[in-house]
Write a protein that binds this DNA or RNA. Sequence first.
DNA 1: ATAGAACCTGTAGTAGCTATAGGTTCAAGG
DNA 2: CCTTGAACCTATAGCTACTACAGGTTCTAT
Lengths: 138, 138
Amino acid sequence: MNTTQFSIGQIAKQAKCKVETVHYYEKSGLMPEPPRTEGGHRIYSLPHVKRLTFIRRCRELGFSIEQIRGLLKFIDEPNHYCGEVKAMAMLHVREVQQKIDDLQRLQSALNDMVIKCKGADYSIDDCPIIDALYVEQQ
Amino acid sequence: MNTTQFSIGQIAKQAKCKVETVHYYEKSGLMPEPPRTEGGHRIYSLPHVKRLTFIRRCRELGFSIEQIRGLLKFIDEPNHYCGEVKAMAMLHVREVQQKIDDLQRLQSALNDMVIKCKGADYSIDDCPIIDALYVEQQ
DNA sequence: ATAGAACCTGTAGTAGCTATAGGTTCAAGG
DNA sequence: CCTTGAACCTATAGCTACTACAGGTTCTAT
């Protein structure tokens, strides 16, 4: 049995976020209020580290705090099942793909811009970069 | 010579943003304070439409307001040249590519999650989706 | 014992809008 | 010409997801 304990600074480091962000997640109800030392410092253990990591990774995946709250319900209320999580994830797969598509379209616009703009010989009035961003798209 | 004039609602529509956003860009100094009617309504012309479209497209490309302020300096101060804009754009190309890479990594994590999670037969304690988000990455 | 790193709470600030309130002006139809 | 209602005006508050700061306390290592 692992009863290793961690300070807020330690779990923040492990989950790669800031101490203030952990406070914020606690205020938002995503992280529980953990036990404290005599002096009032928060004491965390491994499940907390996992939970915080889960939250941070979800944020990276583009889930909003509200969506994460929804996902965490499946953990906190064991009468829910994985199928619902799967449905949420599948929904999210589409959203993420949309973001990728958008960025790729924008990326090639930028690349075009860089290629078209020959360097230091145009005044801004007919700068291809400025023009590139005014051109209508689909 | 084209002297067509537009209301704020019209340029917002053309640039595909909201009226409030145009107000915001004016407050932020990205859009100039245009002439007004007797009654105080803003009067825009084609250069404004182009400028607003440029700003909106820049935002789509992920440029921050500050970065756009920098780009607009090249328009507003004609002693700057396209080469500097090109440098900024090239810098941004790398940033956008990073975003795409991140999203694609996350996308395949999500896809893995959806595939691994068999549906309604796992309690959350060993839900592969939750596990997928706790696994360390590179 | 003491220095200073890390922690505590609470509040304010950030970006980039978006929404609301409460009023004025404009344009089109009768 | 008059009226109605859409569109405009300013100013302020609210939003998300943090981040930073102030002013104080506790923990840890020497």
